[in-house]
């Protein structure tokens, strides 16, 4: 017995396997299994409280022809694209500002993170009051200023509701982008800026030809995450509108929940959630190939 144990303790392979095991179990149990189960459910007619049997692509067939699902897909893509671009522009701008030598620099850097650390559900409730049809503080101020003569219907008109939810999402997502890009900015050596300044580069040229290229690997990673978070957003919509008005803010995640849990159609909800995977994969591939190009630019093998 002892020699065997001794041998195992000295075997790289056995030890490696042993050390890897907890992580592998965690991944398999809490990631692979639920994902696999979710995908499988999408191909069944499972109802809540009742196991399902295999029905092939019937759920997907149904969803493709379903006008509410089509609307949810449009909403999700629109929400993700607009919110991600806004978060990127505002986040980069904020990062560049915070990278400057400001008074109370660390205070500002900490404060910027606040929207990110407040639980989403709580900030969503705050926005819910801000957008309220009767109690909106924004409408109230505009009324007092005499700029409008009736309350803005933030969440009651389909396009207003889409943009209102996007604003709330951007408010919440900007700190993540800004702080991550700020970290990236600080890795750029000041000598590049000094060199370009000696060559007579304007601040815009410095930004365009020094900051942006050196920051792009970080941008790719940060924006991938940002897109993933936005695409799968749930809490914000659920608190603000539950997908209304007229389903104009239903995202695929909220519709999947509505169909699966309150509606009881577990299989259909799972299929809807599975339909999100190709879009998420596309976002990841985009950043993966983006990163590869950077490696080549920086003198890598590829």
């Amino acid at each position: 017995m002892k020699p065997l144990l001794h041998r195992l303790q000295n075997s790289r392979n056995a030890l490696g396997l042993a050390f890897m095991l907890p992580a592998a179990v965690l991944l398999l149990l809490f990631l692979t299994y639920p994902l696999g189960l979710g995908t499988w459910l999408g191909f069944t007619d499972a109802k809540i409280g009742r196991g399902g049997s295999w029905i092939g692509i019937e759920n997907f067939d149904f969803l493709v022809g379903d006008s509410v699902s089509q609307l949810a897909l449009f909403n999700t893509v629109f929400y993700t694209v607009v919110a991600s671009i806004a978060k990127f522009v505002l986040g980069l701008w904020l990062a560049v500002l915070l990278n400057k030598n400001l008074p109370f620099k660390s205070f500002f850097r900490a404060v910027v993170l606040l929207p990110w650390i407040v639980p989403t559900a709580l900030s969503a409730i705050a926005f819910w009051w801000i957008y309220d049809a009767q109690f909106s503080v924004v409408s109230w101020v505009l009324m007092k200023l005499g700029w409008i003569d009736r309350y803005v219907d933030f969440l009651g008109n389909p396009w207003n509701a889409r943009f209102s939810t996007i604003v709330a999402n951007v408010w919440r997502g900007v700190p993540f982008v800004a702080i991550s890009l700020l970290a990236g900015l600080q890795t750029i050596s000041p000598s590049y800026y000094e060199a370009s300044a000696i060559d007579g580069a304007t601040p815009w040229q410095q930004f365009r030809h020094v900051t942006l290229p050196l920051l792009s690997p970080i941008i790719a990673v940060v924006m991938t995450f940002s897109v993933l978070f936005t695409f799968t957003d749930f809490q914000l919509i659920y608190v603000l509108t539950r997908g209304g008005p007229l389903n104009s803010t239903h995202l695929m995640a909220t519709l999947a929940f509505q169909r699966a849990i309150p509606g009881g159609a577990l299989g259909e909800g799972a299929a809807l959630a599975t339909l999100m995977v190709p879009f998420l994969l596309a976002a990841i591939m985009f950043s993966y190939f983006g990163l590869q190009r950077r490696a080549w630019q920086q003198g890598g093998d590829k």
Binding site: Y131, D132, A133, Q134, F135, R150, Y151, D153, F154, L155, G156, N157, A161, T241, R242, G244, P245, L246
Partner: peptide
């Protein structure tokens, strides 16, 4: 109707009524 009912969830009418 008062404006905004398209956005109303369960608590909205209670709030508006009590106000």
């Amino acid at each position: 109707f008062v404006p905004g009912t398209l956005s109303w969830l369960d608590p909205n009418n209670n709030k508006a009524f009590l106000d």
